[in-house]
């Protein structure tokens, strides 16, 4: 993971701090779910979207 603060992805500037924070949350979520099987695939996708939207909205 890079130390730069922003990066352009598909023409959109993203905040790398936010991006890496959501990545960590995603990793925890996925590794937990592999063990618990709490969410199915579509529920997991929703969970990830939730993480993304929360982090993007968070200032």
């Amino acid at each position: 993971m890079t130390d730069a603060e922003t990066k352009i992805i598909n023409g959109v500037e993203i905040d790398l701090k936010k991006a890496n924070r959501m990545l960590k949350r995603l990793i925890v979520k996925e590794t937990t779910n592999i063990k618990t099987k709490r969410y199915n695939d579509s529920e997991m996708a929703k969970q990830i979207k939730k993480i993304i939207e929360e982090e993007v909205e968070c200032y």
């Binding site: 990066k7 992805i9 598909n10 959109v12 993203i14 936010k18 991006a19 990545l23 982090e55 993007v56």
Partner: peptide
């Protein structure tokens, strides 16, 4: 994308997608 960026709600979706794409690339 050119069209979606003109609209506030769609612009947000583009931003979410960019983060998702970033995570995908890193992973």
């Amino acid at each position: 994308k050119e069209l979606t960026l003109k609209d506030e709600a769609n612009r947000k979706i583009e931003v979410y997608k960019a983060y998702a794409q970033y995570m995908y690339d890193v992973l």
